[in-house]
Every structure is written in C-alpha cells, then in structure tokens.
C-alpha cells in the first residue's frame, strides 16, 4: 500500500511540474513572439515581399490594393497577347503609378512602389532616388497621419500615348486620382512616362 502511495505522489509531482512549466513556457514564447513582431504604432502588413509572377517579368506586391490587383491582371493578359504592344506599355505605366504613388500600403521608406517596372540594372539607383526624395518622410507621415490616411491611387487614365519606333520607346501621358487622404497641399496627379523595349518586355526609363 505505502509503495503505491509513494509512486502515486512521484508521478503527480512530475506531471504537475511539467504541465505547469509547459503552459507557462508556451504562453511566454507566444507573448514574446507577438510583442517582438508587433508594431507599436501602426498596422504592419504581414508580408511586404513581392509576389513573384511567372507570366511577366514584373510582379505584384503582396499587399497590393484592389485596384492594383485589377490593373495587374489586365497587364498579365495584355503581356500574354503581345508583350511589346502599346496597350501593354500603357498598362505597365499605369501599374507603376498605382504602386509608386500609393503610400497607404507602405511602412518604410525603402519599400518603393513600382520598382519592379524598371529594368533590373537601374532599379537600385531608382530606389536610391525615390528613398531620398518622394519617400524620404514616409515614416513621419505615417506617424503624423496614420497609414490609412495616406494617399491611395484609385484610378489611372491614359491621356495620350505613342510609339517612337526608331528609338523603340513608348511615351505615355497619364493622370490619376486618389481616395480621400490627409496630406495637405497638392500632390502629383499626372506624369509622362517613357518605356524602352527589351528582350523580356518593356521597362520604364523616364518619369517626369
């Protein structure tokens, strides 16, 4: 009888210690993990890595807006038909504008929208330029207004477009609109974009 009692006590002690320790450990790890990874101030998208697209040399960001998703689908279809057509050129430019000028889904200044529409050799320099100019105060704007109150491009329209066949260059003039946002003063709503034709498709070379 006493032997049984001893064994029972041992087993209970061990199990209780392990159980309690396990619960506390798991809770603690979860807590630290959440604290470590969560942002203090604003929303952080779960994933800002670009989604790789298999049908075009471009890509769509994983936290793209609905409008960006829509435009990208059109681009994919047009690229499949003719990767160097005027329509494709227009859609590349439109996709770039929708990504670059939408600030509401960006969290850090080096998450430059639309970099994927520039030829790879020039991407780094383009990013450098954007980081030190248009995106320079992004975090402060997020802090001041909140991401959701930053501009989101809601529609892009092509004003004019043409092909300079000798230079293999497309020029596209665009205008666009934003949803309601809190940035005071005028922000850019039009631009001229030039694209060059490469083997894999068209990429932007100039925006002004």
């Amino acid at each position: 009888m006493s032997k049984d009692k001893k064994n029972t006590v041992k087993i209970n002690y061990k199990n209780i210690v392990i159980l309690v320790a396990g619960i506390i450990l798991i809770s603690a790890v979860l807590f630290i993990g959440v604290k470590f990874l969560s942002n203090n101030g604003g929303e952080v998208p779960k994933d800002v890595i670009q989604k790789e697209s298999s049908t075009t040399p471009y890509s769509l960001r994983s936290n793209a807006t609905d409008y960006q998703n829509e435009l990208y689908k059109l681009l994919e279809d047009s690229y499949k038909n003719d990767k160097n057509s005027l329509e494709t050129a227009e859609l590349v430019a439109m996709n770039f504008v929708a990504d670059f000028y939408t600030l509401s889904n960006k969290t850090i200044k080096n998450d430059i929208g639309g970099a994927q529409f520039w030829y790879p050799d020039y991407r780094l320099n383009f990013r450098d330029s954007a980081i030190n100019s248009y995106y320079f105060n992004l975090e402060t704007m997020i802090d001041d207004f909140g991401s959701e109150n930053l501009p989101t491009v809601t529609s892009v329209n092509v004003v004019s477009s043409n092909l300079n066949s000798s230079k293999q260059e497309y020029s596209i003039k665009l205008e666009w609109t934003y949803d309601e946002h809190e940035l005071a003063g005028e922000i850019q709503t039009s631009a001229s974009i030039y694209l060059l034709v490469y083997d894999t498709g068209m990429f932007i070379s100039v925006i002004n």
């Binding site: 020039y122 954007a130 402060t140 922000i187 631009a191 100039v206 925006i207």
Partner: peptide
C-alpha cells in the same frame, strides 16, 4: 517637412 508633390527620374541621368 514638405509633403512630396512631384517625382521625376531618368535612367540616363543616374541619381
């Protein structure tokens, strides 16, 4: 700080 209101860039004139 100034709110960004214009952006231009050209691959032919690297930053």
């Amino acid at each position: 700080y100034k709110i960004p209101n214009y952006y231009s860039y050209s691959v032919f004139y690297p930053y």
